[in-house]
Simulated scan of single mutants.
Amino acid sequence: MNPRLTSRRHLAAALTLALGLLAAGASAQVYRSVGPDGRITFSDTPPAAQPATPRGQAPAAADTSAALPYALRQTAQRYPVTLYTGTNCEPCASGRKLLSERGIPFTEKTIDTSADVAALQQLTGADSLPALSIGQQQLKGFSATEWTQYLSAAGYPAQSQLPARWQAPAPTALAPQTVKPAAAAADAPASPAEPVVTPRATATNPAGIRF
Rank of each mutant, 00 (worst) to 15 (best):
residue 112 D to H: 08
residue 157 P to H: 06
residue 119 A to H: 02
residue 160 S to V: 09
residue 141 G to C: 06
residue 149 Q to K: 13
residue 148 T to L: 08
residue 62 A to R: 12
residue 159 Q to H: 10
residue 159 Q to F: 09
residue 133 S to V: 13
residue 65 S to T: 15
residue 128 S to M: 09
residue 112 D to V: 10
residue 159 Q to R: 07
residue 74 Q to H: 11
residue 89 C to Q: 11
residue 71 A to G: 08
residue 171 P to A: 07
residue 92 C to S: 12
residue 108 E to I: 01
residue 78 R to F: 02
residue 176 P to F: 01
residue 53 T to I: 15
residue 148 T to P: 02
residue 102 R to M: 07
residue 82 T to Q: 07
residue 84 Y to Q: 00
residue 159 Q to G: 04
residue 123 L to R: 09
residue 79 Y to I: 00
residue 149 Q to N: 12
residue 137 Q to P: 02
residue 122 Q to N: 10
residue 118 A to C: 04
residue 75 T to L: 04
residue 156 Y to F: 14
residue 108 E to L: 01
residue 107 T to S: 07
residue 123 L to E: 08
residue 80 P to L: 08
residue 67 A to H: 09
residue 67 A to I: 09
residue 149 Q to C: 00
residue 88 N to F: 08
residue 168 A to L: 08
residue 125 G to M: 01
residue 116 D to H: 05
residue 155 G to C: 02
residue 71 A to S: 11
residue 78 R to A: 12
residue 77 Q to W: 07
residue 55 R to Y: 15
residue 149 Q to R: 14
residue 76 A to R: 09
residue 173 A to C: 01
residue 164 A to H: 12
residue 139 L to D: 07
residue 176 P to T: 09
residue 99 L to P: 03
residue 175 A to W: 05
residue 119 A to Q: 05
residue 146 E to F: 01
residue 65 S to D: 15
residue 65 S to M: 13
residue 57 Q to A: 12
residue 116 D to F: 01
residue 108 E to S: 06
residue 167 Q to G: 04
residue 163 P to N: 07
residue 80 P to T: 11
residue 154 A to P: 03
residue 110 T to S: 07
residue 106 F to W: 05
residue 106 F to V: 02
residue 103 G to V: 01
residue 91 P to M: 08
residue 155 G to L: 06
residue 58 A to C: 09
residue 152 S to I: 04
residue 121 Q to V: 08
residue 173 A to T: 03
residue 137 Q to T: 15
residue 111 I to M: 01
residue 65 S to L: 15
residue 67 A to L: 12
residue 56 G to M: 11
residue 155 G to H: 08
residue 144 A to N: 14
residue 57 Q to K: 13
residue 78 R to C: 03
residue 62 A to T: 10
residue 67 A to K: 12
residue 127 D to V: 06
